[in-house]
Design a protein around this nucleic acid. Structure first.
Length: 442
RNA sequence: GCGGGCGUAGCUUAGCCCGGUUUAAAGCGUCAGUUUGUCGAACUGAAGAUCGUGGGUCCAAAUCCCAUCGCCCGCGCCA
């Protein structure tokens, strides 16, 4: 007999079914036992006799029996299957369980996160984590469908890539075949997506892991996921409109109210004293705010040079700008309830302008050729004007689920110092492994 | 790298300021038992803690001091 999900039993009144899942709770009345069976779809009350006496919470069982309507007045409005129950004819224990370190049925907000992270596979059984991960799936699916409907194609870019020390700290991977040389894990697929535009893709997107070796925060992990996109022949307004349409669609999907605001960088600083203003007026509102007209550069007092405000590929509004101090960029940052959840820009697409920027931020021509030669060369073969944006999926989900930590929307997050309490990572590796990589042991 | 908070049975906490009625308390869970209609049941009973770890002060330390470890929050950092 095919296995039925708990919720499916609603439509199987009077029929024999086979259900499988975890023992959520047991209410024993001696000769009659009520067992709430939990599976991915929800709970189902099963009725057993004394044969169920040995059952314990979190055991995995297979129950075969008949679905019956509950007696009058015995329905439970709290659960979806509350109008029916399973009268068990056969009980099979598929897997036993030790007493779990915390109660799966308890409110996990009251349980120490350290314990939850060590036993994450048990924490994932809780209603809270299940809900969050399902919502995450729905939002990501909506994003994929939306991008597809708007003519974008999803393309994967390499994980083993090139270190570009200008940005955040890179995670680096030693090369076995090339002793002394290293790959870097991508902080973002930035250069690849620009090269895809040169490649004539025109509309690219990717749901992609990005990695930055910086200290985590409640809203930040070393490893996170972005909806990354890039498009050719667009103005900034096209990118903003598309993003607004996407976010409105997501808000509608989950029934949340949305407001949109736009501020220039100067206005944001003047009115709100921050470039990440929180414009939320009530608890349920998703207050999005574009920050526009950013300065192209930022004066680095210590090094006495101009640093890019965002990154070196951001296009200036006036390609013939003379004064780095007043030059504005085509940068757009997206802020949600006071948190940056995305950023992007129109990009530079000519070699001349890109070289001018390298020079201004103090990267010598020799070095820029070595580090960015591939991009400069590509720009000489018909690079279309292009731009894009990357949206932080984890942070967005944090707001959609009303969680106060990004970890609550990730299946296997790391701690504040980048460790996994469950897998005990990072960990030491064999000397032999290091020797193959030509890495000296510390 | 820096600052702040927390650490007491499996879980959640009380006790800590102001050391001595503490044999470290409670709820949940666990274990044993009762119970044929319960609603993450109810009732009766039991077990379970070198108070994160190490050192110090004191007649006496969960409580005061020092060090150390772990987790959380923030700053720096995050092209």
């Amino acid at each position: 007999m095919q296995r039925s999900l708990n919720v499916e039993t609603l439509k199987k009144l009077g029929k024999r079914v086979r259900v499988c899942g975890w023992v959520n709770s047991i209410r024993s009345h001696g000769k009659i036992l009520f067992v709430d069976l939990r599976d991915r779809s929800g709970l189902l009350q099963a009725i057993l006799g004394t044969e169920g006496r040995e059952l314990k919470p979190e055991w995995v069982v297979e129950l075969t029996g008949t679905i019956k309507k509950r007696p009058k007045g015995m329905a439970n409005a709290e659960i979806e299957t509350g109008k029916v129950e399973l009268v068990v004819e056969n009980l099979k224990v598929l897997s036993k369980s030790k007493t779990p370190p915390f109660e799966i049925t308890a409110d996990s907000r009251k349980i120490n996160e350290e314990t939850r992270l060590k036993y994450r596979y048990l924490d994932l059984r809780t209603e809270r984590m299940k809900k969050n991960l399902i919502l995450r799936h729905k939002v990501v699916k909506f994003m994929r469908d939306f991008m597809d409907e708007n003519g974008f194609i999803e393309i994967e870019t390499p994980l083993l890539t090139k270190s570009t020390p200008e940005g955040a700290r890179d995670f680096i991977v030693p090369s076995r075949l090339h002793p002394g040389k290293f790959y870097a894990l991508p902080q973002s697929p930035q250069q690849y997506k620009q090269l895809l535009m040169v490649g004539g893709v025109e509309k690219y997107f990717q749901i992609v892991k990005c990695l930055r070796d910086e200290d985590p925060r409640a809203d930040r992990q070393a490893e996170f996921t972005q909806l990354d996109m890039e498009m050719s022949f667009v103005e900034q307004e096209d990118i903003l409109k598309l993003t607004e349409k996407l976010m409105n669609g997501i808000a509608k999907l989950i029934g949340r109210k949305v407001t949109w605001h736009r501020l220039t960088y100067a206005q944001a600083l003047k009115k709100h004293k921050t470039d990440k203003p929180d414009l939320q007026r009530n608890k349920d509102e998703l207050a999005f705010c574009w920050i526009l007209d950013w300065p192209l550069f930022d004066w680095n007092k210590e090094e006495k040079r101009w640093d890019p405000m965002h990154h070196i590929f951001t296009a200036p509004q006036d390609p013939n700008f003379k004064d780095p101090k007043t030059a504005k960029s085509w940068q757009h940052d997206l802020v949600l309830n006071g948190y940056e959840i995305g950023g992007g820009s129109l990009r530079i697409h000519t070699r001349e302008l890109q070289e001018k920027i390298f020079e201004l931020v103090g990267i010598p021509a020799k070095e820029s050729k070595k580090k960015f030669g591939h991009l400069l060369r590509a720009f000489e073969y018909g690079a279309p004007p292009h731009g894009g944006i990357a949206l932080g999926i984890d942070r967005l989900l944090m707001f959609l689920t009303n969680e106060s930590s990004i970890r609550e929307v990730m299946a296997f997050p790391k701690t504040g110092d980048g460790r996994s309490l469950m897998m005990d990572t990072p960990s030491k590796v064999d000397k032999a492994q290091l020797k193959e990589l030509h890495v000296k042991t510390v």
